[in-house]
Amino acid sequence: MDHTPEDIEAVLALADAAAATDGVGPLSEQTLLALRNPADYPDVVHLFVRSDTGIVGYAQITPEPTNASAEVVIHPAFRGKGLGRQLLDAVLDAVGTPLAIWAHGDNPAAKSLAHTLGLERSRVLFKMCRPLTGSLPPVALPDGVRLRSFVVGTDDAAWLRVNARAFATHPEQGKWTHHDLELRQREPWFDAEGFLLAVPSDDPQRLLGFHWTKREPAADGTPGPEGEVYVVGVDPDAQGLKLGKALTIAGLEYLARTGATEGTLYVDESNPRAVNLYDNLGFEVCATDVMYARN
């Protein structure tokens, strides 16, 4: 259904209340983008649970021809009243195709409810953390390769091409369009200087790989203490250059240099090679998101 700016603010406040109680945000970045920019996502479905006090529950459904996805949140003060089950039933009723629902945090209550509804655990996403106050390994770039920062409007097409090639089998990342990129460039956290590109020294417009860093703003609008390894990708044609580790370290150095005190990243449990790389760089699993699916 359509929603108003007041509805958006109410859902954001609801998400903040849930995060304060659960220790993890209930809505992903993509869900928040679609919530705040409904005109840009006309196919997304928004469901609300309203009470006399306002919106106390929210679900968002992203329809896909073969596999829709959804996220659901109930205000902590209204849990234990069956609202979560009712909202999930509404989500399941609204979707005729296979459906995947994200539960941010490996919460026992979410696990129990998913089991009751016949949903199966289908994907696990690790959040990994490490302090940025200690030393980092040196950045070892191959001969003939240098780093430069992303230039908005100039590097967009090249980045989209390499991103699609690097994440050709990824369920979300490899499908990004110019619209997806542009929306993030408008976000308050976007920092082109911290969007690092690996290029040949003699051909600076040819993109070999990248590390896009991210720092969400704190309550006062200044960059927060967490510095995120937002996306690291390497063109398949450049895989033999071992750029992934060098790009990761270079981005962490940038985040530390600009004031971040903790490095974070998200990686699929099913990608042991990446998990091992980050483990060797001092990262540890600090939170877990779980996807439950109805086939």
Rank of each mutant, 00 (worst) to 15 (best):
A77G: 11
A39P: 03
H179D: 09
L117W: 07
E71P: 14
F210R: 07
A219P: 07
G84C: 10
E182K: 10
P200A: 11
V275S: 08
L14V: 03
L183S: 01
D89I: 09
K127M: 10
N107A: 14
R273A: 10
L99E: 02
L208G: 07
G134K: 09
E9W: 00
L32F: 03
G224Y: 05
L132C: 06
V267K: 02
T264R: 11
L32M: 13
R165M: 07
Y254R: 14
A19P: 07
L113M: 13
L241V: 02
N276Q: 13
G153S: 09
E182G: 12
L83I: 05
A70F: 05
L207W: 01
F78L: 15
G153P: 12
D22K: 06
D235A: 04
K175D: 08
L47P: 02
Q86E: 14
G244R: 01
A19M: 06
I74A: 07
T53C: 13
T213S: 15
A39T: 08
A100M: 12
T154Q: 02
A110I: 06
P137A: 05
F48P: 05
A158P: 06
E64K: 06
G144D: 09
A114Q: 02
L132H: 11
P204Y: 14
T97G: 04
N295E: 13
Y278G: 04
E6R: 15
Q173M: 05
V124H: 10
S270F: 13
M1E: 01
E187A: 15
L265T: 12
A77N: 12
T248C: 12
T21M: 11
T258R: 04
A164D: 10
E226L: 14
A90M: 07
F48D: 08
E226R: 14
D2E: 14
V231Q: 00
E253N: 13
P42G: 12
L252A: 11
